[in-house]
């Protein structure tokens, strides 16, 4: 399969933001895919598969994050992340 690049923007919609538990879910979902996935919040860009880097992003409610996936399953990866962040809201209460 060809290498593809896929970039989307997601908004943090759960009230408590990307604290430890949501960050953990984010990393777990990202890690299921082969693609290299980067998440950026303004100037900071981090590896979506590293819990340390993801928690240090400190994305609070309302933050818009850029998710950029590069690899054979880039499309599926960004979709799974979008679903987790914007629809499933990490199984947390909405803001």
């Amino acid at each position: 399969m060809a290498e593809t690049i896929c970039e989307i923007e997601v908004e943090i919609k759960n009230a408590d933001g990307l604290h430890m538990r949501p960050a953990m879910q984010f990393v777990d979902v990202a890690s299921k895919f082969d693609s290299d996935i980067k998440v950026s919040n303004e100037d900071t860009s981090v590896d979506a598969k590293s819990i340390m880097q993801m928690t240090m992003l400190a994305a609070t409610f309302g933050t818009k994050l850029k998710v950029r996936a590069e690899g054979s399953d880039a499309q599926e990866a960004t979709e799974a992340i979008r679903y987790l962040v914007e629809e499933k809201l990490f199984d947390e209460k909405p803001g």
Partner: peptide, 14 residues
Amino acid sequence: DIFAVHLRYLRDKS
């Protein structure tokens, strides 16, 4: 949950 977070940290190669 807390253990799970700590475990992921410890497994985080970066």
